[in-house]
Design a protein around this nucleic acid. Structure first.
Lengths: 198, 198, 198, 198
DNA sequence: GATGAATGAGGGTTCATTCAT
DNA sequence: GATGAATGAACCCTCATTCAT
């Protein structure tokens, strides 16, 4: 049987303003990008397909077409977050040429824009809260941690690296969650003690 | 609950065998306790009035009667969580008589039940994720931190206390979020470096 | 804590035109009635919460409040259908005073309004199709059949009653599903043969 | 199906190991066969293009290419059902050489596998429910009935044939829809009465 | 003072259908 | 000729919240 017989008269005029985009090769990417924005603004608790679709400027049905579930979107979004932060981490450490410069770089990281950016911080803690509950996201945090430690590990022994990485986390967190500001001097001193500055 | 047609046998006569509890002096408390259970199981994202009411064995309308909003319930619940953890923290440190014992107590805390209990961990990170977003919850985390630091501060100078507190947080967190186990030895060494064991 | 403090200024004017009905004791009934209408028009395949709600003039959320599931609505609706038809059946047979009149009553039933009403027929077959698939609806058809047989059984022995009941079903069905009309004479003769008219 | 990011390994080289079937001469047939399976399992209410395509192992777009609409698929599927049952009917009656054997054959049909097979029964009632609503399907049931009557008609006069056909339907139906089993003896006696066994 | 009946908005998800290829 | 990528409407259902009692 021929294709639905009589749909001949369809587009008699020449130019038409693309009623709907037919193919978008980076649709998946746009969606997970938008998901990060939504999580940053509303938290995982307030993240819905509809908000993501609106943020991405994409039809609602597109989300469930490209992703199996909301969780799959979250996973991809948080992977991007982790990579973004790890990139910044690596970049900061890459500038260091020796242990002393590495110490300074770590202090700059803890007190710098990347780790104190409200958006980044909010997203990170949302990820942590989710990761303790869901093993599949544990892989994301684990890979992230591995990259951070590798970046730091260029200058310190493995045990020190682990300690330093944890210290970075703890200091960043307490700076964020405390109402009282933490002096930069305290950060420097803590780093020095962990790495054993002579 | 739907009427389910026949509600004939309800008790039209005078005597009633305690059909509903007449007065519950700690209704508020039961509700916020139940809220913690629900958050632990479903996350803040999955916490609803209905689930809390069911967990508390309390009528749905009771929640909006005793609390202004869901947020108010969350705040009270998380305050209980913070107090519970801080209690454990203080108890652990109270046993210490000197700096050496205090160091050991800190290591025991980081590796012990209280901070590694999955329920407690899940709840804590849910709180953190919420606190970075909502200032009113920042007061809860801030008060919590203050108590922790006070407990530790009996043995160390203020700056060291802040560093140690942050280290505890970071080590606990990375132990939870990493797939690879962290040796106890590393924890001990990190604590020693921060407090400057001779 | 007092009930949400400031909702004092609510209805300052005297008369208000009942914004939403607060209590409707026969809500369940209206819904299952409307469900029958929707099934009759769209079939079980096309029956949705939305269509039922619209037909009943009732908010959508009301359906899931009063019923656990769509299946529960269907069950209640089909029970009404069965009772309605069985009522007509009993009424028709009640007029008969002896076996001869009973035979005539059966013929009138097969050829009469009740069993040939398109709506009633459509609904009955929708029920049958569902009942062969779902045991819980089998109880509805079984109870219906029992009432029909009891009505007929006043005049004939048990075995004859079962046969006659099946014949009624088969004749009604084939009158409905055939494009060629079936003579009334054939119906009469079939009934006579089954009941053994002398 | 979503693109799942990496569709790199697709076959950009010349040789391809039969990635998709090039030509399927009975694609239409596979589809309507699969449709019957889906209807049997999910009912007409739960029959969708997607389920049929999956059951047939055929791309989704293929359905709308080969058929104008879902209704057209249903119609073709139900025609196959009717033919299948009528075939069995004819085969059963073909074995009979005289009226007595024909009576026995009819009893065997009513109590036999073909008419009591759950799948067949479910499909038949789905068809009936649809046919009372949609005239175009009435032709399917009418043709089916004509074949049945022709098969039976070889042994009985036209009026008796019509009665007997209806009786077969009614007895089969009530056996299916009743929770209490119907004795084989009752079936035999009913047939005897209709055909007037001496 | 305290509760359950009731609602409408919004939740995730599925679907027939369209269209570029 | 045949297909899968894509859409938006509709699906069922859950929810916070309101209000009469």
């Amino acid at each position: 049987m021929p294709p639905t017989s009589g749909t001949a008269a369809q587009g008699q005029s020449g130019k038409e303003s693309t009623p709907h985009r037919r193919y978008d090769p980076d649709r998946r990417g746009s969606i997970s990008d938008a998901a990060l924005d939504v999580i940053a603004e509303h938290g995982v608790a307030g993240t819905t397909y509809r908000k993501i679709a609106a943020a991405a400027g994409v039809p609602l049905g597109s989300l469930t077409y490209h992703f199996e579930s909301l969780d799959e979107i979250l996973q991809e979004a948080f992977t991007k977050l982790a990579n973004h932060t790890a990139d910044g981490f690596e970049a900061a450490m890459a500038e260091a040429g020796n242990a002393a410069q590495a110490r300074a770089a770590v202090v700059r990281l803890i007190t710098g824009e990347l780790l104190n950016d409200p958006r980044n911080m909010v997203l990170s803690y949302e990820l942590y809260a989710l990761a303790v509950r869901r093993p599949e996201l544990r892989q994301v945090t684990d890979a992230w941690m591995a990259r951070s430690r590798a970046a730091v590990g260029r200058f310190f022994d493995p045990a020190t690296t682990i300690m330093l990485d944890a210290l970075i986390e703890g200091l960043t967190m307490h700076r964020a969650l405390s109402l009282a500001p933490m002096p930069r001097r305290t950060v420097e001193e803590a780093v020095n003690r962990i790495v054993g500055k002579p």
